[in-house]
Every structure is written in structure tokens, then in C-alpha cells.
Design a protein around this nucleic acid. Sequence first.
RNA 1: CGGGGAGUAGCGCAGUCCGGCAGCGCACAGCGUUUGGGACGCUGGGGUCGUAGGUUCAAAUCCUAUCUCCCCGACCA
Length: 599
Amino acid sequence: MRMSRLFFQTFREAPAEAEIAGHRLMLRAGMIQPIAAGIFDFLPLGLRVKHKVEAIMRQEMDAIEGQEVALPLVHPAELWQRTGRWQEIGSDMARLKDRNGRDYCLGMTHEEVMADLASAVVSSYRQLPFMLYQIQTKFRDEPRPRAGMIRVREFTMKDAYSFDRDFAGLDAFYPRVYQSYFNIFRRCGLDVIAVESDTGMMGGTMAHEFMALTPVGEDTLIICDECGYRANRQVAVFRKPEADAAAPLPREEVHTPGTTTIQALAEYLGISQAQTAKAVFLMAEVQDEQSGAAREQFVFAVVRGDMELNETKLTNAIKARRLRPATPEEIRAVGAEPGFGSPIGLERPANGNGAWVIVDELVAASPNLVAGANKADYHYKNVNVGRDFEADQVVDLTAAAEGQACVRCGGTLAAVRGVEVGNIFKLGTKYSEAMGATYLDEEGNSRPIIMGCYGIGTGRLMACVIEHHNDEHGIQWPISIAPYQVIIVSLANEKNPEVTQAVEDIYADLLAAGVDVLLDDRAERAGVKFNDADLLGIPIRLTVGGKGLKNGVVEYKLRRNGEDGELPLATLTQDVQALVQAEFARLDATLVAESLEAA
RNA sequence: CGGGGAGUAGCGCAGUCCGGCAGCGCACAGCGUUUGGGACGCUGGGGUCGUAGGUUCAAAUCCUAUCUCCCCGACCA
């Protein structure tokens, strides 16, 4: 491609809204163009990167016997109604009606359609197992798109779905996808770690997320450097401290004016925050056991005062669809007092319609805590779970945090930020049962297909690669996904036609040899061309000018580390191909076997 | 949805407080001089000042409503 004809525009300054490096550089390099919040055009340079990422995904999916399909973006509501997600998912799902008033949605993900497809084709165990994948557009009406391509509303996802006859088959296949995902990310030059994750709206039994570590990440990860334990903070567990073994003391009311926070309370009483119980009041949307309809349920969560509530753990413990903070009116309606609340003496009608009391296991094991008296400016001392109030559930509700002890080895946990670039889920039968995706086994019994699903966001992956590979001059693309592998900077002008001829010859030779080369033949000054080559991040730069030609050489420079040198004209094509191969070899060296057990 | 910020030429911004010809830099077009790390001079094109309504002799500027975008939070695969 000749840059004189390339549809692009570089900018010295990025639009004001771009704050993170990856976003600024994609805009400055003219790879994407925003047209609405979280919706972007891809320009030719950006699209070439995207296509190269997708080619790598296809190779790795094919390598584990994936078969590519293409499913629609627009789905009939009926498919999503069968799994209940038409109701469960809120306004993240874009819905529309056709001319006859029938309901449709834009696909946020494709479990329903995939399971429906499988049900149409599969009838026998002989057809299993298999994996289907596609690289396709998703639309999720995010409440807050942000950070350029990191969180968008319309995006391209590689999503794959496995179909097995039993869990043993899924358990055997899952680690192959796990390895495949590391291959994809490493071939794209992206360092990731895999962490245990919540199954969220997907449902299922096991899930991992592939996280690119970066301070701009939206997820907090809890990791142990000593034993390798790592998990999303949403599900991370840790070794809780031993509770005191003291005998329960008589409960005692104390006057604690103005102590509406744990910190104030502990200071006022001269005790540690660990000696208090913290009450968190929430309204949960749950499914009513009798009617099946959604209803709001008051939930009283209790964690130790020095710990934070993990809302994901609570959500899973009570099978809630979502949580929101309770209002002061709602808190008083159940007999509690905001700022001085505890489950002691709450209205607990036998019909189960009262507040649900969910208590962290550490609180249940700790004797003689300070808790609210449900009366303004008063707390109780020596509160003991079981004696002073009953818990509906005693579970782990506490958020893991930096400095706590690793559940596996007792080492010190660290918290880091990451961006989720991929995820893999063991789905089980949720979708196959709903969609009637069954097969007949050897005995003629009808059984639901066991599913797994596996996703990677391509634009997010690109953004993370730039986030990791950039400097003050611009992007430093890994050779595997660079828009072009080589750029020729022509220093020809009207006064040196011999340089023009040499540039044209070199360009023609490289093209003929199949080199992925971009020619900067614009009538710009050298500085402009060098700066644009840096900004675009082309890995190998060739400079063709009178100075080198006089000595029979072309200069080269690697974008990655600034390494430079001269290549003789006589062997230029082979030498350039060798440089390209060397760059690929660096990436291939990062490919190693990954064991699922380590995560 | 809550809090904060911003909408003026393709991009970056000034002008708004205190109403009075819509500006600057980059980019773009033409001419000339330049020509190995974002050149210089001259000339030129380009703006419903987010939108709608109001006040006023006069509105980018004041008032009201509304839309959009960005950041933090909530939410989220």
C-alpha cells in the first residue's frame, strides 16, 4: 500500500475525551473513529490489525477442531424467553420490534442461538463432541462505555461453544481451550493471566477470565505470588483470621452517640474494628419460590467490621438477580436503625417474608462483638450469633483484599487491576435443556448436551496490546498483528530521481516476495514520515535515501527497541524477511504449555 | 441512575464572568523557498458557536428547557 493513497489521517493531538494511552494512540494513528458513545468506525489501518487478530483466533480455534459458523445479530425474543434471559437481563439488551410487532433483540452473546442450532442438527451421541465458533458483532447497551475500545457497546467477539455428551467430555476439552487462549494472546503479543471468575449472567459451574494486567483495568484481581493463587475479587477467597475463643459474655447496651461508622464506633469505644459487626442493608431482586415472579427482598448482610462485603458472594448465596442499597425508610420498615443496625430484635415473621439475615462465617465464629442496638446512638456489646439473633445463612461474604492471607498457602495476597480480554465457562445444561438440545445415547435415552462457551473481544484485545506496547512516540505493534510489518520511508524528492527509482524497485521487490509492506511515498518532509511511522507502530522501518544508497545500503530500525543497522541492497529482500522472521520468533518463544491446575 | 466536567472550523483551544464584526495554533488548498526526525513566507477555503425557546436595538455570551460527549461511582460478559 502506498501511503499517498491510504485512507488515514494522523493527529499530533488526540481528541480531548481520550484519556488512556491506548485510546489516544488509536485515535491519533487514525485507526478508529468514534461515532457515538462506545460505537466506533474502523479505518483501514485499524481493520488490518483486527483482521490479523481474527486470523490468529481462527487458526487456534481450528487447531482444537473448532468449526466456524456465522449466526445472526438479530434474534427472535422467543429464544431468549425460553432460557428466561429475556426477563432476567435488563436494559443492557437492545430490543426491537419488527413491522408486525414481534419482539427481537440484538445479540449480546449467542448461547441461545447456538443451542438452538445444535438442537436442529444433533440427534445422536455419534455427532458429539464438537465445537462451533464465530467472529461476530455483539451489541450490549452498556450504561457507561469508557476508555476507548476497552468498554464499548458494539463490538466484535470471537465466541466459541463446545457440545459434549457428558461432563467428562467438557472437563477434558476445557483445558484445551484454556491452552488455546494463552496461545492466541501470546501470539498477539499480549501478556495475560488466567483467574477464577464468577459465572455471572452466563450460569454454569466453572469459569476463568483472561486478564491483561494494567492500571486502567476495571477488574480487581487477588493474586498470591507464593503459590500462584489468583482470582477475580468477585470470587476470591482468603484464609480468615482465627476468631478469639472467649466464652460469650452477657449482652450489654452502651451509649455511642454519633457513631454511625465502624471507624467512629471503634474509636469511641477504644476497640479494634475487628471486634465489631458491620451491617449492610440491601434490597435484592429474587424469584419468589411459590409464584416464580420477581420480587424485592430485604437482606441484612453482616460482616466483621474490619472487612468489606463482597456483593457477588452475597448475590450468589441468596440467588439474587441484582442488589441495590436499601433506603433509610426501607431499613426502618424492618425495625432496624440506619447507622446503628443489627439483626437483633428484627421483625422476623414465620412466613419468611421478613428480612433475610445472611452472616459471614467469621462473624458467626467470633464471640462478643459490638453491634447496633437498632436505636439511634446505641450499640450492644458482647453480641453472639445464635444466642442474640439467628442467621438464615452463614457463608463467606467477605471481599478479599491486599494483605490478607492466601487460602492455599497462607502467603500474603496482593491486589492488581486488569482488563478482561477473554473468558471461558463450563455452562452445563442450562441452555441445552431450555432449547431442547438433546441427543440419544447408546441405550436410546434422551440426554441434554453439555455445553461450554468461550469468548474473546477483539477490539478490547487490540486496545490492551497498545496499552502494553507503546512509548512517547506512539504504538509498538507486535509483528503478528501490526497493520503492516514493514514500512519503507522514502526520502526521495524532485531533486533526486535516482532515489525515487531505487524506492520503487525495493517496494516492487518486497511486494513480489510477499512482504507485508507499506510505502510512505508522500511528498512530506523526512521528520513527518519518521514520526508517522513511529506513531503507526510499524515494527520494521526501512529508510531509503541518498545517503545510504551511495554506500549500497538501506537503513533499518526496529520500532520495538530502536535497534538499527544497515542492509545491503544486494540481499535486501532476504534480509528483510529474516528480520520479520526474527520478530515472529520472539513471539513464538513465549508460547508455553499452560496447566489449568496452576490457576 | 447519582456526582463532576465539557459542547465554538477536521483536531487542540481562546472568547462567555462584564451582550456589540466569530478568533488563534495545527490540519486543508494554491504559489514560492526548503528537503535525513513534525520547515518557512505569502495567499485562500472552511463555523446553523450542540438544539429549541425566551430576554434585548443587539446573544457564542444572559434566562429556561433539552440533547450529546467525557470522567468518577452504581452496574456489567
